[in-house]
Simulated assay, not measured.
Amino acid sequence: MKARSRRGLAILAGLSALGIASALVLNAFRSNLVFFFSPSQVVAKEAPLERGFRIGGLVEEGSIRRSGQDLTVHFVVTDLARAVPVVYTGLLPDLFREGKGVVAQGRLGADGVFRADQVLAKHDENYMPPEAARALEQARQGKLGAPEP
Rank of each mutant, 00 (worst) to 15 (best):
A3H: 14
A3E: 15
R7G: 00
A10H: 12
G14Q: 03
L15D: 00
A17K: 03
A17I: 15
L18V: 10
L18C: 11
G19F: 09
A21G: 07
V25M: 10
V25A: 13
V25I: 15
A28E: 12
A28N: 04
A28P: 00
R30P: 00
R30G: 05
R30Y: 11
V34M: 02
F37G: 04
S38P: 03
S38L: 02
P39G: 06
V42K: 01
V43Y: 00
A44L: 06
A44T: 03
A44G: 06
E46M: 14
A47M: 08
A47Y: 07
E50F: 04
R51Y: 09
G52R: 13
F53N: 06
V59C: 09
E61T: 15
G62E: 15
S63P: 10
I64Q: 14
R65M: 07
R66M: 10
R66L: 09
R66N: 13
G68M: 10
Q69M: 12
L71K: 13
V73N: 05
H74Q: 13
T78L: 05
D79P: 04
V84N: 01
T89R: 15
G90C: 01
D94H: 01
L95H: 08
F96T: 00
R97P: 00
E98P: 03
E98Q: 08
E98W: 01
K100M: 04
G101M: 00
V102A: 09
V103D: 06
A104F: 03
L108G: 09
G109I: 05
A110S: 12
F114V: 08
Q118L: 12
H123N: 12
H123K: 12
D124I: 12
E125L: 12
E125C: 03
Y127R: 08
P130W: 09
E131R: 07
A132Y: 05
A132F: 09
A133M: 08
A135D: 05
L136K: 06
Q138V: 06
A139P: 08
Q141T: 14
G142D: 09
G142R: 09
L144P: 02
G145C: 04
P149T: 12
